[in-house]
Design a protein around this nucleic acid. Sequence first.
DNA 1: CCCCGCTGTCACCAATCGGTGAGTAGCGGG
DNA 2: CCCGCTACTCACCGATTGGTGACAGCGGGG
Lengths: 219, 219
Amino acid sequence: MLDEAVNLENSLEAGGEPERRVRDRGATERAILAAAKRLLAEEGFQNFGINAVARRAGCDKQLIYRYYGGLDGLVEAIGADLGTWVKDRIPEDTGGMFLLTYGDLMERLSLLLLDALRDDPLMRRILAWEISENTEQVRRLSEARSKALALWLERMRGSLTPPKGVDTAAVNAIVIAAIQHLVLAASAGGQCAGLSLKTSKDWEKAATALKRIVRGVYG
Amino acid sequence: MLDEAVNLENSLEAGGEPERRVRDRGATERAILAAAKRLLAEEGFQNFGINAVARRAGCDKQLIYRYYGGLDGLVEAIGADLGTWVKDRIPEDTGGMFLLTYGDLMERLSLLLLDALRDDPLMRRILAWEISENTEQVRRLSEARSKALALWLERMRGSLTPPKGVDTAAVNAIVIAAIQHLVLAASAGGQCAGLSLKTSKDWEKAATALKRIVRGVYG
DNA sequence: CCCCGCTGTCACCAATCGGTGAGTAGCGGG
DNA sequence: CCCGCTACTCACCGATTGGTGACAGCGGGG
């Protein structure tokens, strides 16, 4: 998949013979999808359009219309691809520790989510997109992302029962919101609410504070 | 200021006589700024451009170049205008309660910030902009917004000393991040991490959870 | 074998973008 | 009254956008 993308991309400026493309619809489709994902991850949703994707995929935009029915279909394909996100981010074992309290679990999950978002530019861009626009396109993508996140959380939680007397849904949503905004702000401007978020030392402080907050509610 | 803006805007489609504009540079400048702020607040940064602002202000874009030196200058003017945000949002008295603990203060501040952001579309759009782009334009605007927020927090805090043993800067940054993301997500999609944020009942639940979190760290 | 279909390319469309230079219109001072 | 300064408008530029129709070339089935 990646090889094909690179090949297609380079075929634009590769000197020498014209380097005729192989006629392989499947490969082209995958190359387009890969190019779209890379483009979105690297450049953001601002300049994400038919022309840009076609340019990066090294093919004509007409093919995007033909194979995906336009940008909407392509975005939908990206959303469908997001389902794989979960599998990649689930450690098989719990790292030797088991029989956790809910507090232990949420602390661990928070830090895992923080790290996962920190090195997933595509997810970050989608998150920013969700916040900035409210088109049908984005709504579908948002739904896919949300479902993936929910599934991830559910898998990680296992069979642990949440404590009583606390609105865990609301509390967890706020914790997740904090994590997401922290990562987004850091990724965009290197800081959040005056807190610098550049060096790994900065992130340690943030992680410590996050742990403290989670521990504060869940003991 | 508002009257002028409305007047200028309507002068486009107002039937009847041409409704000649008065030649008043100051008024035009203010009308442009007001139009820009309204446009940004209502439409977001996506379609925020010279043409759109001029269209909404009911004047030629050339005037924007002349009076503000282009979009950058106009954005800068918006940023400068953000300084007034603080004054509008500071209640004169502390509502009868004084001599608060730091926990009391942060709880109150959190809820105030939540509400303030909830009914300030311009601030929300700027926030979303900060997260989605990293141009010099946005960086300046971000700085102005950040400074306004910091000033607001400082004014509200008064002379209360923070507790020891806690990285209040980091913790507060995370709390603020949570609030901001909550409001942004709600404004865009009506929910955040599976938590619905539409009805006032939804928001009560969120506020309660937020209070619980703040109380958890600051006692 | 030829022909049809599928893959891929190219040329073109109207609309909009940011940006600029030249020209018009009205107010105020002499 | 008239002239000049200034606020303001208009027309145009090249670039880019999303979108469409026509065409080229290879390959497999009749």
